[in-house]
Design a protein around this nucleic acid. Structure first.
Lengths: 195, 195
DNA sequence: GGAATTTTGTAACGACTGTGACAAAATCGA
DNA sequence: TCGATTTTGTCACAGTCGTTACAAAATTCC
């Protein structure tokens, strides 16, 4: 019927993700995207719309690959307390292992684009709230087992752990020091009651 | 000897701060700066060097006006625990009162420019470490009074509270909700031992 | 008042930005 | 093989970017 495309959407999104991830939305030009994807600008516009729409698609794919996957994998664990700790440990390991200090695309975008783009802000906020909800579900199970300190509600604890996620991602972009990142997180472990 | 300047450095820095604060380094053009300061580009270049140098000067002034001032004022309090709590409360109040959701210039810059500019990264990191040091001094005094939980060292607690500062500033840029920001902070109060 | 010196305003440079017009190329069904 | 349809590559648009050359204006010292 017509000429088929020479590329796969997911491949293009993954390549574009690299650019947006390290340089942000405004720091990445359409020509950068064309170079890294091997496509020309008109092909990108034909397939995804404009640059912002491509960015939104990349955000969605990022959340799927790096957030929902992790949440699903860790929530399948038997021990919700171990799941929370594993989440943060994994975050720190990723942060110190990232040579270019790219941090988290969602957190980066929360600062760069969310204040000037309410629509993308909602998108980003929803993905981050998924993480918060994971913490809340886990903490509810922990509280039910009597392993959460009584002064702390699961909702407050979840907001607190999400805050640590944001902070670790910010701090790691400036100084990816494992000791520092671990120290940030360590006091939060006292929220768990001794058995 | 020569023609005098028609402006004061500090005035120009304050005006430029507004731009960099809400739009970032890359989001602010030299023409924006010229418009908001009432100067022409050559005057800015003559007085401060290039755009990046002006940005660095603005960072320094911001740290002086909004960080060191607050640290000095709160550290003069008698009660170090109240000082820490007041710091966070003040942060939240500023965040929810900020209509444009500009957050903190230092935190914004930590994500935007630090990864691509090691020199500015050191500058920003130093200012943020001043805040961490304030927390550590306060927590040391609190620990000496026996009001810090034994499992937490002042160094860890300081990193933890700095993390909350970063997180509150990030979260507030996306959703300046007082309840949410307060919930993030509340569990950290359990680090203080009951008297 | 004249000379020296610094700050101004005007204008422009080359490079880059996101986006779209347009025609050539490639594939499918007939 | 032909026509229909979509993708592709080339090119260019109008605008903005950071920066600077250059000359006019303004001030102080002599």
């Amino acid at each position: 019927m017509a000429r088929p495309r020479s590329f796969t959407d997911s491949d293009v999104l993954d390549r574009a993700m690299d650019c947006f991830w390290s340089d942000g939305l405004n720091g990445t030009s359409v020509r950068d995207l064309a170079e890294v994807t091997g496509l020309q600008a008109p092909s990108l516009y034909n397939a995804f719309g404009d640059k912002r729409a491509l960015f939104a698609a990349v955000l969605e794919r990022y959340a799927e690959r790096f957030m929902r996957e992790r949440v699903a994998r860790l929530e399948a664990m038997d021990d919700p307390k171990a799941a929370i700790i594993a989440f943060l440990d994994e975050l720190i390991e990723r942060s110190v292992a990232d040579p270019d200090g790219r941090g988290c695309l969602l957190v980066n975008s929360a600062l760069e684009v969310a204040p000037h783009d309410p629509e993308l802000a909602v998108l980003i906020g929803r993905h981050l709230d998924d993480v918060r909800a994971f913490f809340e579900r886990s903490l509810t199970r922990i509280a039910a087992a009597g392993l959460l300190r009584a002064e702390v509600t699961p909702a407050d604890g979840a907001a607190h752990f999400l805050a640590l996620v944001l902070a670790i991602r910010v701090a790691s972009r400036m100084r990816p020091d494992r000791d520092h990142l671990t120290a940030m997180m360590r006091p939060a472990l006292t929220l768990f009651a001794s058995p």
